[in-house]
Every structure is written in C-alpha cells, then in structure tokens.
Amino acid sequence: MNEIQFKLRTLLRGEVIKMDGLEFRECAFVEVMVDGENFLENEWYEGSLPVYKELLASGEGGGRYLLFTCACGIADDAGWECVEVRHEGDYIKWSLGAEPGLSYRFDRAIYLRELKTLAAEVDSLEPSFTLEPSQVMFPESEQSC
C-alpha cells in the first residue's frame, strides 16, 4: 500500500517557481506526496500540476479523472490522459498507465482525510491568490473524463 498526502503550496510575494517554461508567482498549487516523494519532483510528472477539482471528485467515487495536467493547463501538452480511479473496499487505486510503477493503492480513510484537509486549506486562500492551473483543457481524445 502507498502513503498519500496532499499539500497546498502558496507562493508569497517575491517567490517565483518556473515549471515547463512558465513563471508562477503569488499563487497556490497542490503538491501530491506519495510514499514521501513529491510528484512534482518526479521525472514522470515534471512540468505537471495536479487538477484540484478532479482530485476532489476522485474521492467521491471511481471513474476516470484528469488528476494531472501540464503546468500550462493543457493536458495534451504533457501527454496527460485521464487516470483510472477505483474504489475497492478500504482502498482507492490509481492506474496511470501500463507501467507497473504507475499504479498506486491508498488507504481510503487517509485519502479522504487528506482531501478534506486540502479543501479546507484551499477554502482559506486569500482572494488575491489563484489556484493553478487556473484553467484546464482536457485531452483532445477525451473532452471530459
């Protein structure tokens, strides 16, 4: 079983992060930690950001969700497709592709608790902060998941 943690990262005045050739400042974005590793620092996810609304929806039931997209918000730019999320008893599973290392199984109670904590943090954001990616374009092959 994998451990999951969702964190809200806010960039305060003067802080700048470059992802996929874009500069981000005075904004917030979600960081996904799996087994203590920040996905945004993993080679498979470099230049990508989690899609907050899709993460929240993934806690409500199984299905296909655009959990990650290019930092610019256009999923096709980074080759992202919808992720198969399955709710199986006490577990929530992600299947990101055919590679064995791209499948994860999380404790359902912890997953849902992490989403609830993340939602409270997002709700408390200052109005001047945007949550990135602020606009998302789903993969052309799937107009929605």
Rank of each mutant, 00 (worst) to 15 (best):
G89M: 12
G61Q: 10
E46C: 10
M19K: 05
D76T: 02
R113T: 14
D77M: 09
R9M: 03
D123M: 07
S124P: 11
L118R: 03
G73W: 10
A75H: 10
F39N: 03
S58N: 11
C82W: 09
F129S: 00
A109V: 15
M19Q: 05
L125Y: 14
V136H: 04
D35Q: 04
E26F: 00
F29P: 07
E132I: 00
L22D: 00
S58E: 08
A57C: 10
R64I: 11
P100Y: 14
M1D: 04
L66G: 02
A98M: 12
E3R: 12
E43V: 02
S134A: 03
W94G: 01
K93G: 01
Y45N: 06
K18C: 03
S141A: 14
V85K: 12
R64A: 11
L66W: 06
W44G: 02
G63D: 09
E15A: 08
N2D: 12
G73H: 05
L40V: 06
I17M: 04
F29H: 01
W94Q: 14
A57V: 13
S144G: 03
M1G: 04
D107M: 05
E121L: 12
M33S: 04
V32D: 07
P127R: 09
E23D: 08
D107L: 13
R9Y: 03
R105C: 11
L49I: 14
R113N: 15
R108E: 10
D90V: 03
